[in-house]
Write a protein that binds this DNA or RNA. Structure first.
Lengths: 200, 200
DNA sequence: ATGCTTGTTGACAGTGTGCCAATAGGCCGC
DNA sequence: GCGGCCTATTGGCACACTGTCAACAAGCAT
């Protein structure tokens, strides 16, 4: 009945396993999912997981890496606008992306590795950095290392606000948009006048 | 040589196990630490962990619960000040707390349960809610549910900024303080004029 | 001292994980 | 269309880990 044994291109099989794993991990914590389950869900022998990912944890990290990334920016068209307008449009697009794609992305704001395991932290950091780059580009600002650093924390803020809005309903969409837009501007703006000290 | 068997008050033994566990978890991920190690580190038989926490995971969550909480607010003295001044002083105190206490607290901004396991998420949420309450109190604002919700996301922002500042050095302390103060004010301020729509 | 309460232990059974040699799918040249 | 090779895939082995439970003893009360 079931096709006996199917030989796939490595990249394809790898992806298939990741997809099945994401499904399982989407409603059960890491250690509550056994490799046997993962293998079954992917329709594959247990050993193959180790063959492709070496480790159970490594498969998990692969799933994370995919889930955390924001969709590529199809954000175009608006060139003559001011920075304020661009910021608002960008955040508007991000909010849209959050509703459709970002189930997992939004969830990535919580806490994870309070503990050493900086694996996960590194993955999220990388994703936040990309997001910062995306926003900078959309604002028409240079891809400066300092500016990126300045913008990175707003990724955490954005995710947290989206969670309040989507999962708890304590924000309206407009409120979220207003606050995030203002925040983004605040964080890039401060940097543009770095020589502003109050104390003598 | 080693004291044969020592009988402790439940609360005391429990705490001892948690402390030992935190140490281990501080530089190794959850699944890389075995219960045997946890037991050894605490100088205790393996079975006792299950006796006190039932589950390996439950011990882990207990460690999280402790690590995520901010120190109680010894923030007093400034009553006649304006909201702006209060905000700045509050954030200043939080930055101090982050340097001394908050090793783990700061790290709690990463990613957690991309996966279902909302256990951890719930713990962090609770901690953020407390932090929001603390800030509201310091600002002299009412402990409104709406205001708390509005302030909660700034906890994620604060942690992220602290991480940039402390671990990467991409922020100066003053910059962090300025930005966070402004952000806090932004998030509570918007709410004070909730009837502010641009569109007809 | 002696008994009782209960914190603490050690072993047992079941399950999950990583590893590796054996198997077979499918593309190649012939 | 047929045989052969490359390698994706499998299944089982050995080991480690986890949760449970009945037996044990530390310290208090009488």
């Amino acid at each position: 009945m079931t096709a006996t044994r199917q030989r796939l291109a490595p990249a394809e099989r790898r992806q298939q396993i990741i997809d099945a794993a994401r499904e399982l991990y989407s409603d059960r914590p890491y250690d509550a999912v056994s490799t046997s389950e993962l293998a079954d869900a992917a329709g594959v022998a247990r050993g193959l997981i180790n063959h492709y990912f070496g480790d159970k944890r490594e498969l998990f990290l692969a799933v994370m890496r995919e889930s955390v990334l924001m969709p590529e920016r199809p954000l175009t068209g608006l060139d003559g606008k001011s920075v304020e307008e661009r910021a608002r449009l960008t955040m508007d697009w991000i909010l849209d992306a959050a509703t459709t794609y970002g189930q997992a992305w939004v969830a990535a704001s919580g806490a994870a590795n309070l503990h050493g395991s900086s694996d996960i932290q590194a993955i999220v950091d990388e994703a936040d950095d990309r997001a910062a780059r995306l926003v900078l580009d959309a604002l028409g600002l240079p891809d400066d290392a300092r500016l990126r650093a300045r913008l990175r924390p707003t990724a955490a803020l954005t995710k947290s606000v989206c969670r309040e809005w989507l999962q708890r309903g304590t924000f309206t969409r407009v409120e979220a948009l207003d606050l995030l837009t203002a925040s983004i501007l605040l964080f890039v703006q401060k940097d543009l006048s770095p020589v502003k000290e109050d104390r003598p």
